[in-house]
Each structure stands twice: as C-alpha cells, then as structure tokens.
C-alpha cells in the first residue's frame, strides 16, 4: 500500500469560513491555530464519529447527515481538521464528528494522528467506518483494527454506484455476519442509504436519559 503517504491537500479543509468581519480586525493577524480536538466534545449529547481512509466520502456523508458543508474534493486528504455538526435522530440530537482520513492506527501524518487520538480518548456511541465499495479489500484492514478496539462500529460501504458501474456486487449480509456489525451499502453523494444508516444508528444509540428536573 504505497498510497500510504499521500497527504496532498488543497487546503480546503480550512475553507471553513470563520466569518465575521470584526474577528479579523486585528490587522488580519488572526490566530490561525488549528483546533486539534475541540474541547466542546465533552457535551452530554450522544456522539458519533465518521472515520475511514482518505477520499472515501466521509465529508459527503457528514454533509448528508448534518447539513453542514465540509469542503469535499475528489482527491485524498481534503479534510485536515475535525469538523463537528449536529443531526436529529428521532427524538434526540446527536453530535457528528467528521475526521481526517486515516490509513491505519499507526499514523504517518499529523492529520491521521488527530483522528487516532480522537478515537482513543473519546467515548462514542457509534463509529461509522466509511469505506469505498470499489476497494473493499484495501479498506477492511482498518475495519479489523477498529474491531480490535472493541468500538461500536457500523460499516458504511460507500460509492456503491461507482462499484456497480464497475460490475461489482456486494453481499452486505455476509460481511455483517462475519464481522458481527451492521453493514450498509450506500452512495452518499446520491443520498442513497442515508435513511438506512439513520435507522441503524437509532438502534445502536441508546435513548437519552430522561432530563433531570431542576
């Protein structure tokens, strides 16, 4: 896998507008420190994370789930920071975290390390491992590593539209049975499979405790 080290970026991950004219008034010398891992991750909402190798469509899925736009491009390494957003899931709100792509749990670049640290230090109600349906064999080793961590995993096999065009068909039930986790076929860019994913999430995330009366 010598595609390991491709972290070419367009830098668009930073496209996130930190708008507001007055924030920049200090001669435009605004603090450009990258938020490593947002502190607010300790809120009470259930949290889920999107993880996976670069260029499998995590940010597209993030957009489909939360409605928040994270820059999406057709090359690996577009996302270099963690983005977070909120989605409605039945009665509750769930915080969704989009992570920079990672190839394995042994990080090679800075952004990969960010994703790994996030996984190892936060409690997630569910982790969605997004993979490219065209290259399943190359993607599954990361699934296996995530399973070794005993994380509440959902395997989202994305880009199935392209896989089908290449003449590939997948049996999700076989994978689901072997890996013992929910497996969903989807094409996030075409909004296919999103509903199914939401239903699966609803089953996996326990209902929130009743609000305390103060």
């Amino acid at each position: 896998m010598d595609c390991h080290r491709c972290n070419s970026h367009c830098g668009s991950g930073k496209g996130t507008p930190k708008s507001g004219l007055f924030k920049n008034w200090s001669l435009g010398l605004r603090n450009q420190q990258q938020p490593q891992i947002p502190d607010e991750l300790t809120v009470a909402d259930a949290q889920i994370a999107l993880v996976g190798m670069p260029n499998v469509g995590k940010s597209v899925l993030f957009h489909a789930l939360t409605g928040i736009y994270a820059t999406v491009s057709n090359y690996p390494g577009t996302t270099v920071e963690v983005s977070r957003g909120v989605m409605r899931l039945g009665e509750q709100t769930v915080t969704v975290i989009d992570t920079p792509g990672m190839y394995s749990l042994l990080p090679i670049s800075e952004e990969e390390a960010v994703s790994k640290t996030l996984l190892l230090t936060h409690d997630f109600a569910s982790i969605i491992h997004v993979v490219d349906g065209k290259n399943l064999g190359r993607m599954l080793p990361l699934t296996l590593q995530l399973l070794e961590l005993d994380l509440p995993l959902i395997l989202a096999i994305n880009m199935m539209d392209e896989a089908r065009r290449l003449g590939l068909a997948l049996h999700p039930e076989i994978l689901s049975q072997q890996l013992q986790i929910p497996v969903i076929l989807m094409a996030a860019g075409l909004n296919q499979g999103i509903q199914e994913l939401k239903q699966t999430l609803q089953q996996q995330i326990p209902a929130p405790p009743l609000p305390l009366l103060v």
Binding site: L136, G137, R138, M139, L140, P141, T143, L144, L168, A169, L170, H171, P172, I174, L175, Q178, L179
Partner: peptide, 10 residues
C-alpha cells in the same frame, strides 16, 4: 480482509 472481500464480493 482479502478473504472477507472474496466472500462478500460478486
């Protein structure tokens, strides 16, 4: 991973 893919892929 390859083994799993072979089983699930048609």
């Amino acid at each position: 991973a390859q083994h799993l893919e072979n089983q699930a892929l048609l």
